[in-house]
Design a protein around this nucleic acid. Structure first.
Lengths: 210, 210
DNA sequence: GGAAAATCTTGACGACTGTCCAGGAATAAC
DNA sequence: GTTATTCCTGGACAGTCGTCAAGATTTTCC
């Protein structure tokens, strides 16, 4: 084979790989939406296929099995989810602004992306039973922790202080608060959500010492 | 029917009801163990029956359907779970003692009852998708919150101070910490668990102002 | 002991599951 | 335009699921 022919072959191969990956991603996104709607326990391949434009058989053309598919969907979740507050951190110039915008975005995504968030908690919990999800879950969790840390660290900085607790503790506190807000949001209990909204700024100040 | 005969009838009826309830409880406990082992998504009635001394058919003699059975199992969980720290609170005479014994018991049950705890989180999460669990979950959650509050409130009292945050915030913090400890406990990541153990006393002090 | 009531087993049902595959449709290669 | 290759469909498969009911077994009652 000439060099030119070889390069052409490569280009074709690459294009095929790209196309293959693109469809994988497309199906993973459909999977994500199905999982968010039904939860892990009730999500079937046929249901996923109905949320895409293909038939159920095609899933085994692009994925080895159900686990492979769901793992890919989880990775898609990560892409969306772990940089949410970065812009707020980058653009805020005062502590008050950072705090207010963080709170606003916190409860905005709680409202907008409620089903996606409940999926995350569902999968994180699933990893307590199913070892095969654990590595991905732990990785995403650490990214979420880092994301929260960036917010609080910057907040402390703008206040001229330092975080009052470790990255781990700050994360579990704010994540715990989010989880509870999600539970009451989906329960239609707006009053509790509102009181948690009022509590979030207080919590942030508790987590920073000046 | 004479009064005596009527009373006797009652006694018989009551005994039957008691027996019926006793068996229901027995089967609910078997359900609880199965759920703790397999998780909600993979627990079937036949599997539950295998963890009892009966065949799968009997479950529909004592329970209307699967949901009824699982709901009863959840209630059994509550009986075990929401008074865990009360004795520590009652018997501790110094803040240091209360704190140390709380920490010890916190990580003791994390180790001993890990599968039961992961079940609780699984069911709480399931309630984000399935409305029929929500009422029970919210009730148990509020009992857990009250349990944690009793601990921290007493701790503050012994320190001559007051809690630094609301009951809700204190609960989500300690519960979040527990959840994270559970994830790493089941992942075999003993190092992380140990560092969380070291962090729990610090956290308690953060939640109290003197 | 024998009748009546309760309890439990067993097997069957229709529906649904993940997986696989034969073959049609679409696209690419020359 | 004619092969090759890739992509996708739709049905079949072996299993499992929740539910139910007929009948066997055990317990209760007189």
């Amino acid at each position: 084979m000439t060099e030119v022919a070889s390069r052409k072959q490569d280009r074709i191969a690459r294009r095929q790989v790209d196309k293959f990956d693109a469809r994988r991603t497309e199906l993973a996104v459909a999977t994500l939406h199905t999982l968010a709607e039904l939860g892990y326990a009730r999500t079937s391949l046929r249901e996923i296929a109905q949320n895409s434009e293909f038939s159920h058989g095609v899933l085994h053309y692009y994925f080895a099995d159900k686990r492979d598919l769901i793992t890919e969907a989880v990775r898609q979740y990560e892409v969306v989810c772990v940089t949410r507050y970065d812009e707020v951190v980058a653009t805020s110039t005062t502590a008050r602004q950072l705090r207010d915008e963080f709170v606003a975005m916190f409860f905005d995504t709680l409202d907008q992306d409620a089903t996606l968030h409940r999926l995350w908690y569902d999968l994180r919990n699933q990893s307590l039973f199913d070892e095969s999800f654990r590595a991905d879950v732990l990785e995403i969790d650490s990214h979420r922790e880092a994301m929260v840390w960036r917010v609080v660290h910057r907040y402390a900085e703008l206040l001229g202080g330092t975080p009052a607790a470790s990255s781990a503790l700050i994360y579990v506190t704010l994540d715990g608060l989010f989880q509870r807000a999600l539970l009451h949001q989906l329960s239609g209990n707006a009053g509790v959500v509102e009181s948690l909204r009022a509590e979030l700024p207080v919590t942030m100040d508790l987590l920073v010492k000046v």
